[in-house]
Amino acid sequence: MITRKEVQHIAKLARLGLTEKEVRKFQKELSKILDYIEKLKEVDISKTEPTSHSIKVENVLREDASEEKNLEIRKKLIEMAPETKDGYLKVKSILK
């Protein structure tokens, strides 16, 4: 079973706040799901290349140039942020 500490570590990596109750819940649930996924170990993959996309994906490039978006779009996007100042997004302090 996954340890408490592991669950708390993953939650921290995922920036996901968990209640004490949930830590215990995830210990059980994730363990059960991961046990099922153990099945993959039965497969011989020693000579297999990984597939990340089902179709051939190629990089699509564009010119590296800045583009002025119209004011209305800009306003719409900025307005969605919970806190703004002078047209910028405002965040809480990063360092304590």
Partner: peptide
Amino acid sequence: LRAQKVRTL
């Protein structure tokens, strides 16, 4: 990575 290889199979 293992899952992606199984995806290939």
